[in-house]
């Protein structure tokens, strides 16, 4: 499939990923230049979703590596199947067979693929998502360099495994720590921020089937007001807007009103301190009046 900027936008929209031209251009360039794409931004703005959408577009498998502190190459890249190797040794000695350690025991038959190796050995071009890379240790980041720049890995006992088809690599980071220059240099960079009210309303409409345009717009405008005016520990992201819209729909609300807001605050803020701050400093009435000023369809 020949990728152009126009058909990439169309395909992403068809998958319900409504986005800006800036994001489309960056993704397009990463695909064209065959470079990993490092995506940053606050939680819930659609970083992980981007990889899922790309996998859907290319109709390929999404191979996901969820990063955490202490992640090492055994869990990310490969491991030898020790049990199988030992059984083979015992079987060979029982049958008085000669066994060449290097040739027979360290072959692909005994290699257990972990996400990175799986992405490289995949015969179809896979989408590899390395999620929350900022949660790993620096040593692991350095270990990724070979995979990200040459799309190959060196396994001491086996040799070098080169990618059959260069995978589409998406790395996400919430910015918990600074990533190394080496890693950043190897990637194209995309920072996803919160969208405009109109764009967010479009996203809500695409993700919440059956929602009226008015409610989608009101939800987007209200969340926009909250992000701008209320300083809390965790700002409501796009995913919270979608959850909120779904909750409002489930409760049968056609439009925002104080009681609807009060009964669904838990969808916007996920900790008690933020909810208390919302009630104290904003409240449903004030939010509604500010939303009406902001929202075009409420005018």
């Amino acid at each position: 499939m020949k990728i152009t900027m126009t058909n990439l936008r169309k395909m992403m929209e068809a998958e319900g990923y409504i986005t800006s031209g800036e994001i489309i251009t960056t993704v397009f360039l990463a695909l064209k230049l065959k470079k990993p794409l490092l995506v940053t931004g606050p939680p819930g703005v659609g970083k992980t979703e981007l990889a899922k959408v790309l996998a859907a577009i290319f109709n390929t498998e999404l191979i996901r590596l969820q990063c955490y502190e202490g992640l090492d190459e055994n869990k990310a890249l490969y491991e030898w199947n020790y049990q199988k190797q030992l059984l083979q040794i015992q079987l060979s000695s029982a049958q008085n067979q000669d066994i060449s350690l290097q040739k027979d025991l360290f072959s692909s038959e005994y290699l257990l693929d972990r996400p990175l190796l799986k992405a490289l050995r995949s015969e179809e071009q896979a989408v590899l998502l390395i999620d929350e890379i900022d949660k790993t240790d620096e040593e692991f980041e350095a270990f990724l360099f070979e995979v990200l720049s040459d799309f190959q890995v060196s396994i001491p006992e086996y040799g070098t495994v080169k990618a059959c088809k260069v995978p589409v690599v998406i790395l996400t980071s919430n910015g918990e720590r600074e990533l190394s220059d080496g890693l950043k240099r190897r990637c194209a960079f995309l920072n996803i921020g919160y969208p405009s009210v109109e764009k967010e309303a479009k996203i809500i409409s695409a993700k919440v089937p059956g929602i009226s345009q008015k409610l989608a717009m009101q939800v987007a405008a209200a969340v926009h007001v909250l992000r701008k005016e209320l300083e809390v520990k965790k700002q409501p992201a796009i995913s919270e807007s979608i959850d909120w819209a779904r909750a409002l729909m489930a409760l049968g609300h056609e439009e925002l009103n104080p009681s609807a807001i009060n009964s669904t605050t838990g969808m916007l803020y996920k900790n008690q301190e933020d909810i208390a701050k919302f009630k104290e400093e904003m409240g449903a009435e004030k939010l509604l009046s500010k939303t009406h000023t902001q929202c075009k369809c409420c005018g």
């Binding site: 360039l29 960079f189 995309l190």
Partner: peptide, 18 residues
């Protein structure tokens, strides 16, 4: 705008430098 996005994605790798 396309030139700006292309250069930004390849040259700037930190959010605060945008």
């Amino acid at each position: 705008n396309s030139v700006r996005v292309a250069l930004q994605s390849m040259l700037v790798k930190e959010e605060d430098k945008i």
